[in-house]
Amino acid sequence: MKYLLPALLGLLLFAGCATPPVSYYYGNYSQALYRSKKYNTPASLEKYRHSLEEIIRTSEKKGLRVPPGIYCEYAYLLAKDGSPEADRYSSLEVKTYPESERFVSFIRAQIKNSSSS
């Protein structure tokens, strides 16, 4: 315990002058994702979807870049529901992260295949 106080003070000093190196807003994403995986119930999946929507909304409001993969995950959910909005969100992923293009194209092709078969 004797190290706790100095450490805390040291930490506060650091915290005072440092700016976060990368700024992303994740809300309660990992929690929601974990629960949707673990319980796989409509309610937990709905919460996971909400967490994605909330990340997008809040990031855009705060002027932050939406974290890697979030637009894409949201697009994937929409596509599974047959929503016409899916393409808009997967395009946003590529626009935000050009390096995701190959992956996003792959996913689009997969979705097309599965819906046409």
Binding site: P21, L33, Y34, P67, P68, G69, I70, C72, Y76
Partner: peptide, 27 residues
Amino acid sequence: VDAKEYYSTAIPQPLAFAGFYVIPMQI
């Protein structure tokens, strides 16, 4: 038994903060 799921949901976020593009694991 729960280690795998706990751990897999805990990977992407810190990796993104380290500056990488992480392909969404959920997909």
